[in-house]
Measured scan of single mutants.
Amino acid sequence: MKVMIRKTATGHSAYVAKKDLEELIVEMENPALWGGKVTLANGWQLELPAMAADTPLPITVEARKL
């Protein structure tokens, strides 16, 4: 699914347009965010693609819901 990742004042957030859902990312498998699992505030887990740590945000990526 397409997910937009952006930086907020409190960390990172994910927006899933198909579900009209925006949630804070509360847990990251990798400190650089990319190439691992993230957990959203509502409990969803997404697998993000591997990208460079300095990838500019906001960005829309293809993520997989676990």
Score class of each variant (00 low, 15 high):
Lys19Ser: 15
Trp34Ala: 02
Leu48Ile: 05
Gly36Pro: 01
Glu47Asn: 08
Pro49Asn: 00
Gly43Leu: 03
Ala52Lys: 09
Val38Met: 05
Gly36Gln: 02
Lys19Ala: 15
Val3Met: 01
Tyr15Val: 10
Gly11Arg: 02
Ala9Lys: 12
Val38His: 01
Ala41Glu: 08
Thr10Phe: 13
Glu29Asn: 05
Gly11Thr: 03
Lys65Gly: 09
Ala52Glu: 13
Asp54Asn: 11
Asp20Ser: 09
Thr60His: 05
Ala52Arg: 10
Asn42Gly: 06
Ser13Phe: 14
Ala14Ile: 15
Pro31Thr: 10
Lys65Gln: 14
Glu62Tyr: 15
Asn30Ala: 08
Ala53Asn: 10
Glu62His: 12
Gly43Met: 03
His12Phe: 15
Lys2Ser: 12
Leu24Gln: 13
Thr39Met: 09
Thr10Met: 13
Glu27Lys: 11
His12Pro: 06
Val26Cys: 08
His12Thr: 07
Met28Arg: 09
Pro31Glu: 13
Asp20Leu: 08
Ala63Leu: 08
Ala41Leu: 06
Trp34Val: 02
Ser13Gly: 07
Val26Gly: 01
Ala9His: 10
Ala9Gly: 11
Leu40Trp: 04
Ser13Tyr: 15
Lys65His: 12
Thr10Cys: 14
Gly36Trp: 04
Gly35Tyr: 04
Ile25Glu: 00
Tyr15Gln: 09
Gly36Ala: 05
Glu27Cys: 12
Val38Ala: 03
Lys37Cys: 08
Pro31His: 08
Thr60Lys: 04
Ile59Leu: 10
His12Ala: 05
Gly11Ile: 02
Gly36Asn: 03
Thr10Arg: 12
Ala63Ser: 06
Glu47Ala: 10
Leu40Ser: 01
Pro31Leu: 09
Met1Glu: 07
Leu24Asp: 14
Met28Asn: 07
Thr10Tyr: 12
Ile25Trp: 00
Met1Tyr: 13
Pro49Ser: 06
Ile5Met: 00
Ala63Glu: 03
Lys19Tyr: 15
Ala50Gly: 09
Thr8Gln: 07
Pro58Trp: 08
Ala53Leu: 10
Val3Ile: 11
Leu21Gln: 11
Ala9Ser: 11
Ala41Tyr: 05
Met1Ser: 04
Lys18His: 15
Lys19Trp: 15
Leu48Pro: 00
Thr55Glu: 04
Thr8Lys: 07
Glu23Arg: 05
Gly36Lys: 03
Ala41Pro: 02
Glu47Arg: 09
Lys37Gln: 07
Thr60Gln: 09
Thr10Val: 12
Ala53Cys: 08
Trp44Asp: 06
Asp54Thr: 09
Leu66Tyr: 12
Val38Cys: 03
Ile59Asn: 04
Ala50Lys: 11
Glu29Val: 06
Asn30Val: 07
Leu24Trp: 08
Thr39Cys: 08
Ile5Asp: 01
Ile25Thr: 04
Met51Leu: 12
Met51Asn: 05
Asp54Tyr: 06
Lys7Cys: 08
Trp34Phe: 09
Lys19His: 15
Gly35Glu: 03
Val61Gly: 02
Tyr15Glu: 06
Trp34Gly: 02
Pro49Glu: 06
Lys19Ile: 15
Ala9Phe: 09
Pro56Phe: 07
Leu24Val: 13
Thr10Pro: 03
Ala53Trp: 13
Glu27Met: 11
Glu62Arg: 11
His12Ile: 13
Met51Pro: 00
Glu23Ala: 14
Ile5Asn: 03
Lys18Ala: 15
Val16Lys: 00
Lys65Leu: 15
Gly11Tyr: 06
Arg64Ile: 14
Lys19Leu: 15
Gln45Asp: 06
Val26Phe: 05
His12Cys: 07
Gly36His: 02
Pro56Tyr: 07
